[in-house]
């Protein structure tokens, strides 16, 4: 299911979503829905927040959110909220600030944020903030660009960015750019194309994206391209995959690279799709 989201969103950003038969995709997605309302990674598997958001995002890409019983999906998601405001990923799963983002983003797309306790959810995310301005998976967990995207995204969607120390976090995020122009996810780690998305989207949401060197980052992403067979890898000379292809293209979209649709940094969907959802445009 995540693979479907990565692949299809990439196609949409490239303006090629019609390369696939949308009816077949939608039929398959709806077969992955569990009686609880959540979606599984494939038919017959068990539901999880990870796949539920991807399923809803793909339906949004095809403008087919109307095939969903939004209340049913929303009930599944709000049922995963814990007493302290955090979210579990599934009925027996662990707690992680990533799951707070998945829940908030998904309920936002479904216009059902009122189904959860937003205040408690926001307070839990704020408790994952560290002294370097970043966020971890749980209170006390090390700051990590992927977790930062989830926390900043959730706070942006719920109008709670006042919990972010934008200048401090912005500096931590722009420190992630290394000599090659690529971005890493934590200090002293190797750069990876996927952080083009996690770091850039966070910087955009807090209005600090001009603090990094955009030209060098564009060059780094383009250097990770397989120029013969297509696709993008984690770093130059490595094998390509759909995960890094999505993050590379989405990163280039955030950098306003010509020929790509704009992507919304919080909902991780093309801006025209987000406009359709929230403004019926």
């Amino acid at each position: 299911m995540n693979g479907a989201y990565w692949g299809l969103t990439t196609l949409d950003l490239l303006g090629k979503l019609d390369a696939l038969d949308s009816n077949e995709v939608i039929q398959w997605i709806m077969k992955c829905q569990h009686e609880s309302g959540g979606f599984a990674g494939n038919i017959g598997h068990d539901p999880h927040l990870l796949y539920t958001l991807s399923a809803v995002q793909v339906l949004a890409l095809f403008d087919k959110l109307n095939v969903l019983d939004a209340d049913k999906v929303a009930n599944y998601i709000s049922g995963l909220q814990n007493e302290d405001g955090s979210f579990s990923g599934d009925e027996w799963g662990e707690v992680d600030s990533r799951f707070s983002y998945l829940a908030i983003c998904c309920l936002s797309i479904l216009h059902r944020l009122d189904k959860m306790n937003v205040e408690k959810a926001v307070n839990y995310i704020a408790s994952c903030k560290n002294v370097d301005g970043g966020f971890g998976c749980t209170p006390g967990g090390e700051s990590h660009a992927g977790q930062i995207f989830c926390c900043v995204g959730a706070l942006a969607i719920t109008g709670s960015l006042h919990h972010v120390d934008k200048d401090l976090l912005g500096w931590w995020l722009c420190e992630r750019q290394v000599k090659s122009g690529g971005l890493n996810g934590r200090p002293e780690k190797l750069p990876d194309v996927c952080y083009s998305w996690w770091v850039l989207s966070s910087l955009i949401m807090i209005d600090r994206v001009h603090w990094i060197n955009k030209d060098k980052l564009v060059k780094f992403i383009l250097n990770c391209q397989d120029t013969e067979n297509g696709g993008i890898s984690d770093r130059p000379e490595d094998a390509v995959d759909v995960f890094h292809t999505y993050f590379g293209v989405a990163g280039l979209s955030l950098l306003e690279y010509p020929g790509l649709k704009a992507i919304d940094p919080a909902h991780a969907l093309p801006v025209d799709v987000v406009n359709r959802i929230f403004f019926q445009k």
């Binding site: 693979g3 696939l20 077949e24 995709v25 494939n42 038919i43 017959g44």
Partner: peptide, 10 residues
């Protein structure tokens, strides 16, 4: 057996 539906997409 796994049920992929009549026309599996992936």
């Amino acid at each position: 057996p796994q049920d992929d539906g009549p026309n599996p997409v992936v």
